[in-house]
Simulated assay, not measured.
Amino acid sequence: MLDVTPLLGSPTGMHQLTKGLVEALADRSDVSVAGYAVSARAPRREMIAVASRLGLVVRRSRLPARLCHLGWSLSDRPALSHLVRDADIVHGTNYSAPPGLHRLITAPDLTPVTHPQWCSPAVRGTADALRRAVRRGAHLHVTTQEEAGRAAEVLDMPRERVHVVPVGIRAAPPGDGAAARRLVGSERFVLTLGATEPRKGLTCLPPAMARLPADVRLVVAGPRGRHEAVLEAAVESGGISKRFVRLTEVDEARKADLLAGATVLAYPSLLEGFGMPPLEAAAAGTAVVATAVGALTQILEPEVSLVPAGDAEAFAERLAEAVAEPLPAPPPVLARIAELTWAAAAEQFLGVYGVIASS
């Protein structure tokens, strides 16, 4: 039983993780998959559409997610147990799961625990529920070995209950780069993908644009986040308002077009659990300038040089170099990315589920 709540609303990174895993597990004949969702806001038609697309039975609670997380952080009573009845394994795909036995909880990153000031109130509210869950025996899923060691330390839990499974990188459909350039209104543009959250470090991009030729535009594509106003202020103070393009509705087809048309993908993140957009860009043949965070150090380096997180000056220099001479990812990097499939991830998750069920 998997939490499919991340599939409601804007397509975030957790949306991609949940969708990829559910679809890969549903393709197998040796496991039965069902879903649950906790949302007071999602329209019923959206829930029906999610269940229909996935071909799953999805049980839903209309209680607000924040209220559920608070309850799970305060009590071991099996609140909302009807959502997960008869499940051998309950997999909370986004920091939390109802109290009970045989739980696996995915922490896409440890920001709610280590940097709560960067998080929305809803995400901050998952930290206490996560701490209580691991104290009561829940297993944790993270996406890199580095994150596993950090999780065991900050959550004070046995390392053997922290499981590392990388996410899959879905092969993007061929994009129409010309369509993206028409949309942006320029033949050259710097692209960044993702919500405008504090940990994404996007405020370094407007000053960096001052070093680039005047025809190069900055495109920020993804949902509005907590740093939307901060980014807008940085754009205004950096004097690049006429070179700035903001896209908040980005489906898979539009993302493929943007990746195909971009001169370079910029990813100045300060902290990541994994870091999917640079890998998607590299797989699409787009040049990448990114910080040394998450899984990027394992997959992109040493062939692609990464910038220390938080070094705005170094990032601006590397971005100017990449715009002057865009370099696609070399074959060794592409080979490592090609190994990251959702089928492989599903196989690893089944092994983790088996360990949890026998514990």
Rank of each mutant, 00 (worst) to 15 (best):
G177V: 04
T192C: 06
A97T: 09
E301R: 01
Q145A: 06
G125W: 12
D215C: 05
V113Y: 01
P173H: 13
A210G: 02
V58D: 03
R243T: 08
G351N: 14
Q16F: 06
V134T: 08
A229F: 03
G285E: 09
P332C: 06
D311R: 13
L350F: 05
D76Q: 14
A344G: 10
P308A: 00
P308T: 00
A345V: 03
D257Y: 03
S305L: 07
S120E: 12
L25A: 08
G9Q: 07
L7P: 03
R124D: 07
T297F: 02
V38M: 05
R182D: 05
P308E: 01
K242A: 14
E197L: 03
R243N: 06
H163D: 02
D176R: 07
A312M: 10
V304H: 09
A233H: 02
V22M: 02
L56Q: 14
A122P: 00
V164F: 06
L83Q: 07
W342R: 10
E147W: 02
L296E: 02
A256T: 07
H141A: 09
S120M: 08
A49E: 08
L101F: 03
C68W: 13
G177W: 03
L191M: 09
E249V: 04
S52G: 04
L140W: 07
A282C: 03
E347G: 00
F244A: 04
D88F: 01
P302Q: 12
T286Y: 01
R159M: 03
E46L: 11
R170A: 15
G92R: 10
T291G: 09
Y36W: 03
A316C: 15
G351R: 15
V162H: 10
L155R: 13
L70T: 13
T286R: 01
L271C: 09
T144M: 15
R161V: 07
V84R: 05
A42C: 00
L334S: 07
